[in-house]
């Protein structure tokens, strides 16, 4: 479905591929192929963003699916005053936060259901000596784990800024917080990561 060229593209001859804003406009006019192109463009970055946010691939895909369904259902709500990427990331991040809240509630419930005799157990930590770290996958999994353990408000800005490379202005729009707050949260998130991953960062 995603390989088909949008018939609507014939209306607006352009040497380049249509922008996201043009695609959503075509979709609003009824062109379903334009929506398929949007899916093609955004499925991977969104899955990456949500995966880092939730730390779970299957849940990340569910959230991204729900994001696309929301875009599909509410296409008429998009106004061309904002960037499309900002709009779709806002939907995705809101859904991810809802999922996080649901998980937290579930965790609280499972803890409250635990009897006095139930003992908590610690998962074995990764090998954290520099000698034990083989470059590549191991390093990545440690970084991903460190990101996942960040508080949500730091995690989202660090992912958007350092992984997805959004500008401060865009992050401010996506999360609906002032730029100053974005900068401060990015700084604090980085400080926490730097503390956790110091042995990896000393090159």
């Amino acid at each position: 479905m995603l390989d088909k060229t949008s018939p609507m593209t014939d209306k607006k001859p352009s040497p380049k591929s249509p922008t996201d804003e043009e695609l959503i406009l075509y979709f609003q006019e009824g062109d379903v192929y334009a929506f398929e192109q949007i899916v093609h463009r955004y499925k991977e970055p969104l899955v990456n963003f949500i995966y880092h946010f939730l730390g779970d691939r299957s849940n990340a895909e569910d959230v991204v699916q729900e994001t696309f369904i929301r875009v599909y259902k509410n296409k008429h709500l998009y106004r061309n005053i904002a960037k499309f990427s900002t709009w779709i990331y806002t939907i995705a991040s809101n859904l991810a936060k809802t999922e996080l809240r649901r998980r937290r509630r579930r965790r609280i419930l499972s803890i409250s259901q635990m009897g006095f005799d139930d003992k908590d157990y610690d998962l074995p930590d990764h090998v954290k000596t520099p000698e034990g770290i083989v470059d590549g996958e191991m390093k990545e999994s440690i970084i991903r784990e460190a990101i996942e353990k960040l508080p949500a408000k730091f995690k989202e800005v660090v992912i958007l800024r350092d992984v997805q490379e959004f500008s401060y202005e865009e992050i401010s729009e996506i999360l609906d917080i002032p730029i100053g707050t974005v900068k401060s949260r990015v700084n604090r998130g980085r400080q926490r990561l730097q503390k956790k991953l110091q042995y990896l960062l000393d090159k």
Binding site: K43, Y51, L193, L201
Partner: peptide
């Protein structure tokens, strides 16, 4: 700066084939 480069270079997570 090293942290930022690591974060940028994280290998992308590809959606599964069943996604679409």
């Amino acid at each position: 700066q090293v942290l930022r480069s690591y974060l940028r270079e994280l290998s992308p997570i590809k959606p599964t084939q069943e996604f679409v």
